[in-house]
Design a protein around this nucleic acid. Structure first.
Lengths: 245, 245
DNA sequence: CGCAAAACTGTCGGTAGTGACAGGTTCGAA
DNA sequence: TTCGAACCTGTCACTACCGACAGTTTTGCG
């Protein structure tokens, strides 16, 4: 195959460059493969919805606005399957499994979009959702074979692109790291509070006075900038500051 | 290349079979690629350490015991890099970056292990760490070219194996899903408590009496099987039942 | 309609959490 | 050695939380 060299060139770029800008990555992908569009999403998942961290795509403002305006994110079967699992989701498969999503595919077709593609879930070190959606640029009958051949290429390149963005995020976050961290004892009492223990119980467990437990808890509340133990525990759990299950 | 067909055969198996047992996957991988050993880990990450969910490997009990006894998990640079990032970690690279880990590599060599390999972080829908470590079975000088050629194969197959195990876990968990879920109001009240609001404040915010807030909170505590609001909030945050930041 | 689940409210009494007062000890880094 | 950070303790007054009592109203579904 003649694609082989192009893939390896792209692999080298993704492995060696510190930060690959989304637009550049998208251009490289479209230059190397028969891809119509790409969409990269990195978000927090809540029952109520998504808190989007990063969103990059080549779809154009119109398509995305139409998608959001119609509330398609609530019925999008690809999104559902990507959130729930870690397996690459083929759009045609998702469409077949979720007939209620027909309006979405109909609208997409109206806007001139191809309906073949695959969405690749990506590794996330913290609790997040991330994926790269790839839209095919070829007749529908050619797509399955093309996907079979190149899925591995897409996956590794998507992973490396994702890694590049995450590593860049980390670099930025390291600098604005204000706010003191909790001491060992503060973490400890917070953990026991999260386990439902009272001050008196915690004091007994740790072999210190109830008053001292209160002292640590007060310090923890101050450091976390919160007003109640419940709020402190919520923060601590969200920020992975405490361990006990 | 003659490997190509073998890869695609394996790809078909991983895509189509519901559950691929670890031993079977490992055998298939070793039959297809020049791999000495594999190790798959799925765990929760806490500051204090790892809570292992699944661990499958082909190393033999001796090697793993030696690893744990020596406390190598605390200095293992591969582990560190896999936890912190999402990029495939080459063992030789990790070794170079973390000179303090020499004892680990020395011991591994003593036990007759090759020191070439790569560890692939895997997508995790919840907050977890998962990876597949692959140990090369070839002379060191051949490994870089082999890895470059097959990294994409490893990654996609690892993802599919991981997906297969996770989906099986989900199936099991669905059946023993006892305990009622929280109502809308219970979730709402819990969210405000996690934000540090008192009963009276929550009542004012939601336009209901303080007593009613207490009622919902009591129900939430009972349903979550906990004894304090702090514990309820901890559970709710851990189980993603509440959203507010 | 009937029924169940959710939403809502009141009061009492005990326990737990919270802030502000005012200290002492111990250990490691400058 | 001096200094700061972490660790530890006591008391007072106030507020918040929590369980148990005993209800009413609304909503959705068969």
């Amino acid at each position: 195959m003649t694609d082989q060299q192009a893939f390896f060139d792209l692999l080298d770029i993704m492995e060696n460059e510190k930060l690959v800008e989304p637009t550049r990555f998208f251009d490289l992908m479209r230059g190397t493969f028969s891809i119509a569009n790409l969409l990269y999403l990195d978000a927090d998942v809540f029952p109520a919805g998504l808190a989007i961290h990063r969103l990059h795509h080549t779809l154009g403002a119109n398509s995305l606005r139409a998608y959001m305006d119609a509330g398609f994110q609530r019925i999008d079967p690809v999104l559902k399957m990507a959130i729930g699992g870690v397996r690459p989701v083929d759009w045609a498969t998702a469409r077949k499994l979720h007939p209620e999503s027909e309006p979405l595919f109909a609208t997409a077709a109206d806007l001139g979009h191809k309906l073949d593609g695959v969405t690749l879930p990506l590794p996330t070190p913290t609790r997040r959702l991330a994926f790269l959606a790839i839209q095919a640029d070829m007749p529908t009958e050619e797509w399955p074979a093309y996907k079979r051949c190149h899925l591995r290429d897409f996956q590794i390149l998507a992973n490396l692109f994702h890694a590049s963005l995450l590593e860049n995020d980390n670099r930025i976050q390291l600098s604005d790291h204000c706010g003191k961290s909790l001491t060992h004892r503060e973490t400890e009492v917070l953990s026991w509070a999260a386990a439902g223990k009272s001050y008196w119980e915690i004091g007994t467990i740790l072999g210190i006075s109830e008053r001292t437990v209160r002292f640590f808890m007060t310090n923890a509340r101050r450091k976390l900038n919160v007003v109640s133990n419940s709020q402190a525990v919520a923060q601590a759990v969200r920020r992975d500051l405490i361990s006990t299950l």
